[in-house]
Simulated assay, not measured.
Amino acid sequence: MLLKKRSCWASLICILFLLTGCWDRIEIDQRGFVVGVAIDYSNTQKHKFKGTYQIVVPSGLKQSSQGKSGSGSSNKAYFNLSTTENSMPAISSKLAVRTSRSPYFEHLKIIIISSELAKDDKIFADLLDFFLRNSEMRRGVQILIANGKASDILDIPTFNEPTPIDYITSIARNDRKSNYMLPESRIGDVHEYLVKHESFAIQTVKLEEKGVAMTGSAIFDGHTKEMVGFLTGDETQGLNFVTEHVKGGIIEGKIKDHTFAFRAERTKSKITMQQLNPTKFRFNIKLATEGVIDKSISDYDTSKSETIKNLEKSLEDAVQINTLKAIKKLQQTYKKDALGLGAYLFQNHYKLWKPIANDWDQGLNIFTQSEINVQTEVIIRRIGNIIKTTKE
């Protein structure tokens, strides 16, 4: 028994020598916290990438929290560092020798990729591969497609945020206030689309005077993994209704050249399908939304049921028009199913889907031949806090 105990203690002592502890530990004050990455093609060297990292300055963040810094502050809360190389690992390695703190991606919030780069065959997926394989990366990192140079986005005024990345992140979460933009596009979700070979849409960002705009979306081919084009804000609103991504926002309607506003509160999309022949399908999409009148028309009494019906009809037409715009562009121009109809067939009609999967939005491109009908229903639940805005 004593011999057995001694043997156990000897084994434990040997194990202690094999434990290396935190062999790769780096002190927090030696890390360069990268919060944003922008990727473009090099302006001077062909087939090379320009990577721009936005790295936070802790002392600047402290001053910002005390209200002492901003875009014009001498001690900003961030700095941008750029270099050109053949790949993302090479860019990170090169930047590591140009800063006193090694780049650290645990707090990365946004990756911005230029549309020029995203349009090249398979390069988009190769770039994402670096971030997906990096052990410091989180799958919740947001991806944006820049309509122009991605690096320019990292130089915008910060306004009431400490860094441009914080400013962009705040805008990206405003999809509850605007249905003309997509919800956040996360790297984990994009990776799933690429693995499944499903076409998809990604949030876009465009440089504007004194800031950025994030209406519209970028459409990607799930097979070639390249960007095929953009949808406008109106078309993106239609896409959001079909994919049930409308979380709020305003819908505008018109009656006799008068414009009024409706705030969506609840939306629902229901898809049904009929197979007309082995390669011909008819999809019926019913879109329903409920909400409240945000801006009424002084010449109309919204307390009358007839007026409410006219307002609802105008809103139904507006939603239908924008949805049909999106469907037309996806079917006729890009020929890619970012609507999720292929996913609907896979989930609900697998026996029908399996023989046509390879010809859905490539090959025979059955998606472009499908008939898609849209029916809309808008219900005005409330008319606001007042009935009239003029004197009786």
Score class of each variant (00 low, 15 high):
H47P: 03
K48T: 14
F49T: 06
F49R: 06
K50S: 12
K50G: 05
K50L: 13
K50M: 11
K50F: 08
K50E: 11
K50T: 11
G51E: 13
T52Q: 09
T52E: 04
Y53T: 01
Y53V: 02
Q54A: 12
Q54W: 09
I55Y: 01
I55C: 01
I55G: 00
V56H: 05
V57D: 14
P58M: 07
P58I: 02
P58W: 04
P58L: 04
S59W: 07
S59M: 13
S59P: 04
S59K: 13
S59R: 05
S59V: 11
S59G: 00
G60C: 04
L61C: 02
K62Y: 15
K62M: 15
Q63V: 13
S65Y: 10
S65E: 10
S65V: 07
Q66M: 15
Q66E: 11
Q66W: 13
Q66D: 10
G67Q: 04
G67E: 05
G67N: 01
K68G: 12
K68L: 10
S69N: 12
S69H: 01
G70E: 06
G70I: 10
S71L: 12
S71R: 13
S71K: 15
G72F: 11
G72H: 10
G72E: 09
G72K: 10
G72I: 08
G72V: 06
S73H: 04
S74W: 06
N75T: 09
N75E: 13
K76R: 06
A77C: 00
A77P: 00
A77L: 00
A77I: 02
Y78T: 03
F79R: 07
